[in-house]
Simulated assay, not measured.
Amino acid sequence: MTEAELYSVYKGVYVPTFVHPPESLKYYEEFTFRPDDILIITYPKSGTTWMQEVIPLIVSDGDLTPVLTVPNWDRAPWLEEQRAIQLNLEQRPSPRVFSTHFHHSMMNESYFKIKPRVLYVMRNPKDVFTSSYYYYGMASYMVNPGTQDEFMEKFLDGKIMFGSWFDHVKGWINADKQESILYIFYEEMIADLKGSVEKIAKFLGKSLNPDVIEKIAEQCVFKNMKQNKMSNFSLVPEEYMDHKKSEFLRKGIVGDWRNHFTEAQEQRFNAVYKDKMKDVKFKFMWD
């Protein structure tokens, strides 16, 4: 099926209509934040699921119950998805944990007024591309990616779900400095998960002892998350996600793009990246 059949255009970017119907987008627009809300904000395939495991464990002081009994889409729901409407989020006790893939410019009026806490996770766009390619191939509500060359052109042009990676990242790293944002890299979490948990906990005002940090990091190691049916998306019916084509949690590594890019594709990607990021002063781990 085509983009016109599967996607809607919302604030200038594609969103899959199946999971983002008009009523859920309206719900988000009218949503009221609290100052102690915690927002996990990512471009898709940048570490959202990982954060949806880490943050609830920090909030619960290392109690594993939330991540072993509640699906990640309910414990840290996407505010723009249809599921959010059903969850009585207004009644949830603080601190509430939410996820969104929205660009900075797409955030609602309440966000800019209240300025809740944000964890913005970034990942090497080449790995984002590679992970996205497999995801598009297994999810029925997304346009089939076609060949890797075809999908690369769409990715570089921002003609995919949630638009341009470049615009998304530039929008968030240039956000108002008064906003309460912690920038963290997927690569940083891979290199030192315990250190990352400690850094995130400190940002959230949580003082956790070393044993709790160790326990959280152990639960959030990729192989353990992959076995957790509340986190690995295996509960999603096969008609929507075909795990025989590709697992949702596939490899969880840094640099997998090197196993997939041809030399020509790497040169093409590098040229576009250099052009689109030429004025960015922010220091990325992969540069």
Rank of each mutant, 00 (worst) to 15 (best):
E239S: 14
S207G: 08
L39F: 04
V280H: 07
F129Q: 15
I253D: 06
S105D: 11
W257N: 07
I213A: 05
D211G: 08
A264N: 09
M138E: 06
P145L: 00
P77G: 10
V9L: 14
V280Y: 02
N224E: 06
D192C: 08
D37N: 09
P21R: 09
D287W: 05
W73D: 05
F98I: 12
N108R: 03
F282T: 11
H243L: 15
V221D: 06
K244V: 00
D275H: 11
M285S: 00
Q219I: 04
F222K: 06
G171I: 04
R268Q: 13
E3M: 15
P95G: 11
S132M: 14
T48D: 09
S132R: 08
V59R: 11
N144E: 12
V97S: 01
E239G: 01
V221N: 04
Q219V: 04
N124F: 01
Y133H: 10
T17V: 09
P56R: 14
N228R: 05
E3P: 03
Y186W: 05
D192H: 12
K45G: 03
G163P: 06
S94M: 11
T32S: 00
Q86Y: 04
D279F: 00
H260G: 02
G195C: 03
L68C: 01
V121H: 01
Y27T: 07
D167Y: 12
Y183F: 14
N270D: 14
L182I: 00
R83P: 00
F222A: 09
W50C: 14
S105M: 05
I85C: 03
S231E: 00
V15N: 07
G158E: 03
C220Y: 01
V97F: 08
N209D: 12
R34Q: 03
F166C: 11
Y14V: 02
V121Y: 02
R75V: 15
D256C: 01
K226C: 00
D74L: 05
L119Y: 09
Q148D: 04
A84C: 04
L6P: 09
I181W: 08
S46I: 01
N224M: 03
V118Y: 02
F284Y: 13
H20I: 09
V67M: 03
D63F: 09
L79F: 01
E218R: 13
L204W: 05
Q148Y: 11
D256S: 06
N174A: 05
M225Q: 15
N224L: 13
I40Q: 02
L39C: 10
I190W: 04
W172G: 09
A201S: 13
Y183D: 03
V15M: 12
F33T: 03
D149G: 15
M122H: 09
L119I: 15
D211C: 00
I253Y: 12
Y111R: 06
V13Q: 10
S246A: 15
K223N: 12
M152L: 15
A191N: 11
K229H: 10
M107R: 11
N228Q: 08
P35R: 08
V70N: 06
E214Y: 09
M106C: 08
